[in-house]
Design a protein around this nucleic acid. Structure first.
Length: 646
RNA sequence: GCCGAGGUAGCUCAGGGGUAGAGCAGCUGAUUCGUAAUCAGCAGGUCGUGGGUUCAAAUCCCAUUCUCGGCUCCA
């Protein structure tokens, strides 16, 4: 009996029933057969050795496909497990999935030490085993068989996994002496795994629950060619050079001090310029968008946060209350600006005619983050949000939300953030106790967010369990140099705080109504935004943001006088820079400014002094030739200016 | 908070029981120079902190703190 196989290009061929993926690959070309790693059959990824018995649409995966890489790395995880078991008999295995770059395996070494030396030994064993070209064999097993096997082996983690599986849908995979509970798919054999690197060891709670035992997670990556591994490792090295913590130190943007306290950044003069430029940019954009700036204190009475619900939710895990000499008073460092803004809203009766009221503040907030969470500027304990709260009528929610989306997109566009993900952060439906408020309002808010995103044609990804405790969010996620994803901009619809603070407005019907609040921060926090910005531009900031836009470099001390005039004139035009009047050769001065990533170097010597010119050199590009100072200013004027805010 | 690895001069790093090292940065002097490092000299550290072992500790042990990689968390 024949079956119909549909190829990705839409063509259909007939094959005998029971044909294997690898045979289909062979029928196309010998080359494809050699490179094939897995096959997609009707949307499911299969082993190449699994017989296909029904009509199917197929796609053959090679190393160039994500599906192919996943199968490759999944098989590599098994190879790792095989090597580990060979060296550490009795080791117990958790889960070992492929990930975006490589794979990991969670293992229980029962206290046996596992460091760099052990890593290297396992790595070596993996390469040895790979060369044996063991075939990955898939085997259907009954639940009883599966339980029996792992009971004998004494692996309680696998037994726990089997417990959650349906009888009849359980498969084992074996290569060499190693058998694993696994749904697959796998590559045909271990031979293609030519280059192996175990990257690091970390702790990970079994099943991601901190109440469970912590297992040892080993991260690794493999490639079909050594060269590809070398390139990957080189790429990692390059990414590390863009790490904002490294550049922040080198470019003197910010610092941390043990004495000040962990997670409390100190902004150095150059970093402060950067920060203030971004702040000015946002202030301008917000004035145009109808926001009113406000300022509120850094602390607030405990009662404020009891009202908002933050105290109940985070009180124990926050900085603890500040006490006054009169013991009856308690104040909290503000972890949020919204309660303060609610109180501003309440300072007078509001009419439906004046809504929406948009209150904006660069509010510095303090949150007690767990010590292990702190990470450069991306996760800190004191940071400044470009916060604002929009108080509007229910019929204005969508329109206001869309306007905020536009503002976030303007920010991202102005700073060249093109690779963001718009994430709709929803409630975890299985854990509603984590959230406050009625279902109906949550559903409404979630619907409004999705509609607003759709209206702007945003491609969104919905993620359950990521909502704030008072409402769903639209989060804009951006990756850092090492591919870690961070939340920057965020927009939230909130029906809860207006209730808790009993916010009201008088409608056209002369009745009291409850406004809706939209929380929003396009940058998110200046700290995190700047961290990601640094990594995006590798410290080469857009000219309008650069802390130092130019350096004037005299050829020798004889021209320091003229050089100073140049500096003064540029400063008059609000262009930032400095004079390098050190007794050094020009090559040295250029090098130092290049290393500091100063956008423009203006070199002045005898010729320039006589002609009243500057020799312009652009960072990373080189000599642009001599020109009048006014010509220089004019030529790059648009770059010096802050992006136009529409 | 949890698991693991680290902390030596301002920075990057060597040294792993026997008098604290290098390069860069800094300071002083010489040099006055044309597009990515001029030369010479000087100075700089209770080896994260606190205990312990030892005749002797940067080095070995314990505790603590901070940093790094993950996990959990993230208003």
């Amino acid at each position: 009996m024949n079956i119909k196989i549909t190829f990705p290009d839409g063509s259909i061929k007939e094959f005998p029933s029971g044909i294997k993926g690898i045979e289909i690959a062979q029928s196309i070309s010998e080359g494809l057969m050699r490179n094939a790693l897995a096959i997609e059959v009707n949307g499911e990824i299969w082993d190449l050795s699994r017989p296909i018995t029904k009509d199917a649409s197929i796609k053959i995966f090679t190393w160039n496909d994500k599906g192919g890489k996943y199968a490759f790395w999944h098989s590599s995880a098994h190879l790792f497990a095989e090597a580990l078991e060979a060296l550490y008999p009795g080791v117990k295995f958790g889960i070992g999935p492929p990930i975006e770059n490589g794979f990991y395996y969670d293992v229980d070494l029962e206290g046996r030490p596992f460091g760099d030396e052990e890593l290297a030994a396992v790595e070596k064993k993996m390469s040895e085993l790979a060369k044996q070209n063991s075939v990955f064999v898939r085997k259907d097993v009954s639940k009883a068989e599966a339980i029996d096997y792992f009971t004998k082996k004494g692996d309680q983690y696998k037994l726990e996994l089997i417990d959650g599986l349906q009888d009849g849908s359980i498969t084992f995979y074996q290569q060499g002496n190693f058998v694993d509970l696994c749904r697959g798919p796998h590559i045909p054999s271990t031979a293609p795994i030519k280059a192996v690197k175990l990257l690091n060891v970390a702790g990970a709670y079994w099943r991601g629950d901190e109440k469970n035992k912590m297992l040892t997670r080993v991260y690794g990556i493999t490639f079909p060619k050594q060269k590809e591994l070398d390139e990957y490792l080189h790429m990692l090295e390059e990414a590390k050079k863009r790490d904002h913590r490294k550049l922040g130190k080198e470019l003197e943007l910010f610092a941390f001090s043990e004495k000040v306290g962990m997670g409390l950044p100190l902004w150095l003069p150059k970093g402060t310029i950067l920060r203030e430029r971004l702040e000015q940019f946002m202030r301008k954009a917000q004035v145009k968008a109808g926001y009113d700036p406000v300022v509120t204190p850094h602390i607030g009475s405990k009662q404020l946060y009891v009202t908002s619900g933050h105290y109940e939710k985070y009180g124990k895990d926050s900085f603890q209350p500040i006490h006054t000499p009169d013991e009856s008073e308690e104040f909290l460092l503000k972890p949020m600006n919204c309660p303060h803004h609610c109180e501003i809203y309440k300072t007078k009766p509001r009419s439906y005619k004046e809504l929406p009221v948009r209150l904006a503040e660069f509010g510095t907030v303090y949150r007690y983050e767990q010590s292990g969470e702190l990470h450069g500027l991306t996760r800190v304990r004191g940071f400044t949000q470009d916060d604002a709260h929009i108080f509007c009528r229910p019929d204005q929610v969508k329109e206001e939300f869309v306007k905020v989306i536009d503002l976030v997109l303007l920010v991202f566009k102005s700073l060249g953030f093109e690779n963001y993900t718009a994430q709709v952060s929803l409630r975890d439906p299985n854990n509603k106790a984590k959230y406050i408020g009625e279902d109906a309002l949550w559903d409404k808010a979630e619907r409004e967010i999705q509609e607003a995103a759709d209206e702007r044609g945003l491609k969104t990804v919905a993620v359950l369990g990521e909502a704030a405790f008072y409402g769903p969010k639209l989060d804009f996620m951006v990756r850092d140099a090492l591919g870690r994803s961070w939340q920057l901009g965020t927009i939230q619809v909130d029906y809860q705080l207006p209730q808790r603070f009993e916010l009201e407005y008088v409608g056209s019907d002369n009745q009291k109504h409850r406004p809706v609040m939209i929380h929003r921060a396009p940058f998110g926090s200046l700290e995190r935004f700047i961290a990601v910005l640094i990594e995006h531009c590798a410290g080469n900031f857009p000219l309008w943001l650069a802390p130092e836009q130019f350096a004037v470099l005299p050829i020798s001390e004889k021209f320091n006088g003229y050089a100073q005039q140049v500096v003064d004139k540029l400063k008059e035009s609000d262009i930032r820079g400095f004079l390098d009047d050190r007794d050094e050769k020009i090559g040295r001065k250029i090098r130092d400014s290049e290393v500091k990533k100063v956008p423009f170097m203006l070199i002045v010597g005898e010729k320039e002094a006589i002609e009243g010119k500057v020799a312009v050199r652009k960072h990373g590009e080189g000599d642009k030739g001599a020109m009048d100072l006014s010509e220089f200013v004019e030529k790059f004027q648009s770059d010096f200016k802050m992006p136009v805010v529409d």
